[in-house]
Design a protein around this nucleic acid. Structure first.
Length: 870
RNA sequence: GCGGACGUGGCGGAACUGGCAGACGCACUGGCUUUAGGAGCCAGCGCCGAGAGGCAUGGGGGUUCGAAUCCCCCCGUCCGCACCA
């Protein structure tokens, strides 16, 4: 029953039924009121049944940008709320993964602003990194040019999806003003002993004469560029001493509101284990313990099983291999070590290969101090020099790998934990009393561990020890496009930190990119030559640069105080905004980035750079799912990207945003094939047609007193507000979109009833819809709000539902017989139990089921349900 | 192997604390409108059955008046970590 459109505009009606939650006395940031002429614009850009996303979106994006609508200052009086989407690596225009991530962040920024918070919404660029350098080698474009270009493209894309930021605060990792403080922090850490230099194995390509990142080593262990077999070489590298914070990083996981999955991954990565470290005396030819040489130190988590130790295994890299090897085993040991050295770590850590091939006897023996027996020492590739002491005691009775190894090499097996009678396996790892264990016999595992550790300590063999899997962070990269490490090497004075007043060290631009992949800094004379800060003699600069994870470990702090040129940020600014109230990003950063950023925050707080009380940077974390196409992750490297541009040109940003929000719960992975962009575009048109002045819908609206049907729509409006508020708060964006659609369907039915809609009721309903939808579909809602009401929807206070209007007077009560739905009856919403039961028993279906008898039991849950048990 | 998430129509999903399974969207079907091509509006749409009704949330058991939801055992999918002593 649509009718020809009536010209003219309905007068703006106050949303009388909606109670403003907060009156905002000031507009956020530097919004200056250049109000566009609303009605003219609407007429220009769209018709009564069809919106014009291109015109509307461009106009509002320009306006948000020009007016600085989402700029916020540090002295903003509103409650601070920090929303942060992980800053992107600028790889070019946005891809769908970006759209998903930044749409969700943007929704939250707009929502919290309407709720009355002063929302800090910064954006920046993780602009150092290998791809820019590889592009330079390939195309000759300087990484700086390449990067700046990509930042421009990505910035434009972000604006095109309607994402709003305080662009004044944009951090770019590669700019001197950021490099300066990354280096300054490095020096602070250096001073505090949190940075050190040590040798570490790296992937070395003999063809390119350079170090390779793990990603550049192909599966067969060759270099992706030259095809040469990559070697493992020990080289001097820089490390951050993240292990100093291992325990705190573990403990404080309990303080943050993160997905359990991410917490578990971090806990596992830190990998705390409790056990004991103690010495096994070296045995002489007669099997007696020697006292003239240091014992071999082993680490175990099962000191309770020590009586079952029948051999020991050490890492091929262990410094005491030569000493323990006997002459007759020398050549076998040397061969074994050579074969291990030539293999990649991946290969070595794989479980392929039989244990007899993966280990070799040294011929040497040590003494099990618990029972005084001599036991053989083996080498095995699976014992890692980097964990524990690089030497283990082997207890085949209680460890399956030790069991297998013992079988392969003919070692004894002694059980020291009594397995249950029905146990028919090999190694037994369960609970039970200790056996064959001298003074430990009869003790349960926990007690036996404690007793064994006491005994170890009493006999001066060692002590209880906690170990962590977490290793220090190797931060140096033999690359050009990264933050230079502010260290100078002087022949006289050695390694010297650069004085802070000489910062920043910038990257020289006049460099030649070598097809070998070798850093051009190593041959750039101007960069290399330096003056020793200590003796003023000639010296040379460090040519390694920092891992880009260093840049991303503190950018969220810099956002609070980007203009500071005295320190990286003032503690006051950080205290105002941190911790980040909501951090949003991909789960692929669950370990590295999030661990490093936590470490930096703790260390900076302890050094007095950040506020001391700031122990965690990100209070709440949300990890959104990735987007797949054809079953695999959408990514540039897989070449299965869908570019947003065509969709933005066609259906527009609001439709694309809605499709991202609607398709699936935000934390889940999603297949591109499941997106319904056309459906969202159609829905937006339905909203447009309903809301735009001059539309045919609602043209016959009534004035006067509202009827019961109008009151029902009014209640639905309040329920919508309550529902969407709740769903935004709990990240249930897909159901929020369903809520918009459901409500819009309700209003379509309403405007087409025979009586026609009530003007004030309809206006209030549409206004409420535009308000709650405006964080999700910002352009359309802003446009419609402006033409209907004047002003800016995103500066309106968030609507609040009237609790008295959330329920209807009557409700449909379910009547069950034996738990099965048999009838439905209308009852008052506040029905008492007695009346509810009476209504249920009066139901024909219940009467029939009872067949004159009495119910055995009646369960009443008024006003929703009555269950009659017969 | 260890850890985590999960399994609901043709499809994506909804059902927040046990209480009408399938909201909302896609696809499909029908109607209206005469719409020039991907339009709009309305309606139908889990399965079986003519119907009353019955059966349905991976399978099997259990707890409960009542289970998609809680417990146990299987089966399957996805994602981490994978020889950490």
């Amino acid at each position: 029953m649509t009718r020809p459109g009536r010209s003219g505009v309905r007068p703006p009606m106050p949303a009388a039924c909606l109670v403003a939650s907060k009156v905002m006395s000031n507009s956020p940031g530097g919004a200056t009121g250049t109000q566009a002429n609303a009605l003219d614009t609407a007429a220009d850009v769209a018709g009564p049944t069809r919106s014009d996303p291109q015109a509307i979106e461009a106009r509002w994006q320009q306006r948000w940008h020009d007016e600085g609508t989402y700029h916020v200052d540090n002295d903003d009086p509103r409650p601070p709320f920090y929303v942060l989407s992980m800053y992107p690596y600028p790889s070019g225009p946005a891809h769908m993964g970006h759209v998903r991530n930044y749409t969700m962040g943007d929704l939250l920024v707009r929502y919290r602003t309407m709720r009355g918070d002063g929302v800090l919404s910064p954006i920046g660029f993780d602009s150092f990194g290998l791809p820019a350098e590889n592009a330079a080698i390939k195309t000759g474009t300087h990484p700086r040019i390449h990067t700046d270009r990509n930042i421009e493209a990505l910035s434009a894309s972000l604006r095109r999806i309607g994402a709003v930021y305080d662009w004044r605060r944009a951090v770019k990792s590669h700019e001197p003003s950021y490099i300066h403080w990354t280096q300054w922090i490095f020096l602070k850490f250096y001073e505090a002993g949190l940075v050190y230099r040590d040798s570490a194995p790296v992937n070395w390509c003999p063809g390119c004469q350079t170090v390779l990142a793990n990603e550049q080593v192909l599966g067969d262990g060759t270099c992706e560029r030259s095809g040469d077999l990559v070697e493992r070489r020990d080289m001097e590298q820089w490390f951050y001493r993240i292990t100093a914070y291992a325990q705190e990083l573990l403990d404080d996981m309990d303080r943050v509101d993160w997905p359990e999955k991410v917490k578990v991954m971090q806990r596992h990565w830190i990998g705390r284990s409790e056990g004991a470290e103690f010495g096994l005396p070296i045995a002489d030819a007669g099997g007696e313990a020697r006292t003239d040489v240091e014992p071999l130190t082993v680490y175990t988590t099962r000191p309770d099983t020590s009586f079952g130790m029948t051999f020991a295994v050490i890492s091929p890299e262990h410094p005491r291999v030569d000493e323990l090897t006997t002459d007759d085993q020398r050549s076998a040991v040397d061969d074994f070590r050579a074969s291990v050295a030539g293999r990649s770590e991946i290969d070595r850590l794989s479980t392929e290969g039989t244990l007899d091939k993966r280990g070799v006897a040294t011929g040497g023996r040590v003494v099990n101090p618990f029972n005084g027996r001599p036991i053989p020492v083996f080498l095995a590739d699976y014992v890692l020099m980097t964990y524990g002491t690089g030497a283990i005691m082997a207890v085949p009775g209680e460890d399956q790998r030790d069991w297998d190894f013992a079988k392969a090499h003919g070692c004894d097996i002694i059980r020291t934990v009594q397995p249950p009678d029905d146990f028919d396996g090999e190694a037994y790892v369960g609970d039970g009393p200790a056996i064959n264990s001298g003074f430990l016999d009869g003790l349960e595992i926990g007690e036996a561990k404690a007793a064994a550790i006491d005994w170890i300590a009493e006999n001066d063999l060692g002590a209880g020890k906690v170990n962590y899997r977490l290793r220090d962070w190797l931060l140096s990269r033999q690359r050009y496009w990264g933050c230079p490490i502010p260290i100078i090497y002087c022949d006289e004075c050695g390694e010297q930190p650069l004085p802070a007043d000489q910062l920043p060290i910038e990257l020289p631009d006049d460099v030649e990119f070598m097809p070998t992949g070798r850093s051009p800094l190593t041959t750039h004379e101007g960069f290399l030559s330096a003056t020793c800060p200590s003796c003023s003699g000639s010296a040379r600069s460090e040519t390694d640069t920092m891992d880009t994870f260093v840049d991303s470990s503190w950018y969220f702090l810099r956002f609070t105080d980007l203009w500071n040129d005295e320190v990286p940020f003032s503690p006051e600014a950080v205290r105002h905004w941190l911790p980040v109230d909501q951090y949003i990003g991909g789960v692929e950063h669950a370990i590295l980035h999030l661990m490093y950023a936590r470490f930096f925050t703790k260390a900076l707080a302890d050094l007095g750079v950040a506020p001391k009380e700031l122990r965690e940077p990100f209070q709440r974390l949300f990890t959104q799912g990735m987007i797949r196409l054809g079953g695999s992750k959408m990514s540039k490297s897989k070449g299965n990207l869908v570019a947003p541009e065509a969709i933005l040109d066609d259906q527009g940003a609001d439709a694309l945003r809605l499709a991202h929000l609607q398709v699936k719960p935000p934390q889940e992975d999603v297949d591109w094939e499941d997106f319904g962009i056309d459906g969202c575009a159609k829905f937006l048109n339905r909203v447009w047609r309903l809301a735009v002045p001059g539309s045919d819908l609602g043209a016959d609206a009534r004035t006067g007193d509202p009827t019961e049907a109008d009151a029902e729509v009014d209640r639905a409006t309040h329920r919508l507000v309550a529902r969407i508020t709740d769903e935004y708060d709990r990240w249930s964006y897909n159901t929020a979109i369903a809520g918009f659609m459901e409500f819009t369907n309700t209003l379509y039915r309403y405007v087409q009833t025979d009586d026609g809609p009530h003007a004030a009721t309809l206006d209030a309903a549409v206004d409420a819809l535009l308000l709650v939808m405006s964080p999700a579909a910002p352009h359309l809602c802003a446009e419609l709000w402006e033409v209907r009401r004047g002003g800016h929807v995103h500066l309106e206070p968030w609507p609040e539902a009237d609790p008295s209007k959330l329920v209807d007077d009557t409700i449909t009560m379910v009547v069950q017989v034996n738990g099965k739905v048999r009838d439905r009856v209308e009852v008052p919403s506040d029905v008492e139990e007695e009346a509810a039961v009476a209504a249920a028993l009066a139901s024909d279906k219940v009467v029939a089921a009872l067949a004159g008898g009495e119910p055995r039991k009646v369960i009443a849950r008024p006003p929703k349900l009555v269950n009659v048990v017969v």
